[in-house]
Design a binder for these strands. Structure first.
Length: 423
RNA sequence: GGAGAGAUGGCCGAGUGGUCGAAGGCGCACGCCUGGAAAGUGUGUAUACCUCACAAGGGUAUCAAGGGUUCGAAUCCCUUUCUCUCCGCCA
């Protein structure tokens, strides 16, 4: 959520910047600023009235003590009007605050200056491309055929016991999942991240703080009886660890990582996008999260990009990095890199990671702040990235490494799988 | 799930209707003391919003959260959440 004080002081900058996200904010912002003026005036009036009634109460108190009962009773009558006024102003203020807040929540984050303009994924900038795309014969199999051939993932069983998009991993397929999770976690720990094992369900306040609510309501599984949401990513519980906290600058940066299952309803997806492992309702992911200062957050974003690049290299996967354009960047993000691996049999790039700097967008919602060396309290910057999401990594590994006698496991992974080939 | 107890500042802990943002202690910061340190000693030490120059100063709110009683609530009442103890159930 953008800060009202920032919008107040930089109205035109905000409007222009949001155009880059193809978001027409002018009316909303006008309305917000309107409400803001009334809100502040109301606040002032309330505070003044409250001050009056407080001093009256004090006087009455003193009179009672000194036995001036009659005078006290006279004053007491005067308080009735004040009480009514206070009540009215309080109700008005609550209404205004509610309206302002519900409008503010509609505004997406401002993209960073360097974010390219653009409307669709076609307009994303290829920032980097590495690794060679293997030259496979024309009868190379897509991963959903390979998994069947080697009996390592049973999509139909998943459909039977739960529904489409909930695969069952089996044998070496299951072991490969476990290997990847451990590999990713070990790498992150080695890079200085602290491992967490978070709850897989969160309450409403948490879903709101990281921006899933209200923007993406309907994309999460919701256990209505207890009003809990299944997490769409570990980012939600991990970032919320720091909700309503004031850190010391010396504690920053905070680097956290977590493996979790992720649950997404993916309402509205269809076709080849959802074939096999391409898009699932439940999948595994290791997430990295950092909390840092505004001065260092873009440096941190690059560091995280380098980090993910390193893992992809160890997995020997051809990949490219996209710097997302304004139109493709997410609601809460100021800048995002997408990492995509090439899936040789499908002949397409698959997104396996998304690394974003949210600046103060999340921290403002969740009141995550730090005290700097001068003792000034400032909103921290939050960043996160997948490192990595498993299904599409598995898809690419299977497709790219297929050969006559099976599927080769990259060297870095063999210590984790205990086998170097799936056959 | 049932019965009971409780929730106060970074922490511990006073405070059962009056000027309490809240005693005291610990911790922390700065100063004095010291050759240096410890001890001792002095001062300071929450957050948000409003006013305002994001200064100083001032105002308001906040003692789990929300509502109520009252001229006045950390203190009384109601609701919710959470914690602890006992019982039940259970991996």
């Amino acid at each position: 959520m953008l800060q009202i004080s920032f919008i107040r002081d930089n109205k035109q900058i905000v409007i222009d910047a949001l155009k880059k996200k193809n978001f027409d904010s002018e009316n909303t912002i006008e309305r917000i600023l309107d409400v803001d003026v009334t809100r502040r005036a109301t606040q002032k009036k309330l505070d003044d009235t409250l001050a009056d009634s407080k001093s009256l109460a004090r006087e009455i108190g003193n009179m009672m003590k000194t036995g001036m009962k009659d005078q006290a009773n006279i004053l007491r009558e005067k308080t009735a009007d004040l009480k009514i006024t206070v009540k009215e102003l309080q109700e008005k203020l609550a209404l205004l605050e509610g309206e302002q807040n519900s409008l503010l929540v509609l505004l997406p984050n401002i993209p960073h200056d360097s974010v390219p303009a653009g409307k669709t994924p076609e307009d994303n900038e290829v920032a980097e491309q590495q690794g060679s795309i293997p030259d496979l014969s024309d009868n190379a199999l897509p991963h959903w055929e390979l998994t069947l051939k080697y009996d390592i993932i049973d999509f139909e069983a998943g459909t039977k016991i739960t529904g489409a998009g909930f695969p069952v991993y089996k044998g070496k397929g299951a072991k490969l999942q476990r290997a990847l999770i451990n590999f990713f976690l070990d790498e992150a720990i080695q890079a200085g991240y602290t491992e967490y094992q978070p709850p897989l369900m969160v309450n409403e306040a948490s879903a709101y703080a990281t921006g899933q609510l209200p923007d993406k309501d309907g994309q999460m599984y919701h256990a209505t009886i207890d009003n809990l949401y299944l997490i769409p990513t570990a980012e939600v519980p991990i970032t919320n660890l720091f909700r309503d906290i004031i850190l010391q600058e010396s504690q920053l940066p905070i680097k956290s990582t977590a493996y979790s299952a992720c649950f997404r309803r993916e309402a509205g997806s269809y076709g080849k996008d959802v074939r096999g492992l391409n898009r699932l309702h439940q999948f595994d992911k290791v997430e990295i999260v950092q909390v840092t200062t505004p001065e260092k957050s873009y440096e941190t974003l690059e560091e995280m990009r380098q980090y993910v690049t390193g893992i992809l290299r160890k997995l020997e996967l051809p990949f490219r990095i996209l710097k997302l354009c304004g139109g493709d960047i997410s609601f809460a993000s100021a800048m995002t890199y997408d990492m995509e691996v090439f899936s040789t049999a499908q002949k397409r790039w698959l997104e396996v990671s998304s690394i974003s700097n949210f600046e103060t967008f999340q921290s403002n919602r969740m009141k995550l702040r730090y005290k700097d060396k001068e003792g000034k309290i400032t909103l921290a910057h939050t960043l996160n990235g997948s490192a990595l999401a498993l299904p599409r990594i598995v898809a690419a590994l299977l497709e790219n490494n297929q050969h006559k006698e099976g599927i080769r496991i990259p060297k870095a992974l063999v210590p984790y799988t205990g086998f170097d080939n799936i056959s």
